[in-house]
Amino acid sequence: MTAFHETFGRMKQANDFSGLQQAVPYAKFLGISAAIEEGRVITSMAYADTLIGNTTLPALHGGTIAALLELAALFQIAYEIETEAMPKTITITIDYMRSGAARDTYARAWATRIGRRVANVRAEAWQDDPSKPIAAANANFLLA
């Protein structure tokens, strides 16, 4: 089996991430897809009833938003650098600002620093307006 970071590298070179859900089972489970816009990875989570945490509001499960932010941060690092292995999350802190409505959610990330061993990344998730994030995360990843 081809290592995931190699698969991601090929998707990056071809600028075609349509194979993401096939390469990562959990991406399929969450309905995650990725696309490049102006040199940045935009990670999307397509709405599905299985993502709901509170059926009264209704609102997305906070855990799905955490997962989206973590994947967005991971994809941005993998997009920016050639890794020898899939970066591993060391720690992630998520701030929830607004409840996630029952609709598609998007996320983008900025690598604030990519060192030899560790990458520091900030990620934001939004639904209708990127300037009004529903949640944000700071994450550190171990490289190689």
Binding site: M1, V24, P25, Y26, G63, A67, I92
Partner: peptide, 17 residues
């Protein structure tokens, strides 16, 4: 819910949820 198909390890996101 596997995040890394090379290893079969569950995705961090599922643990987060």
């Amino acid at each position: 819910i596997v995040g890394n198909p090379d290893t079969g390890v569950i995705a961090g996101g599922a643990i987060s949820a």
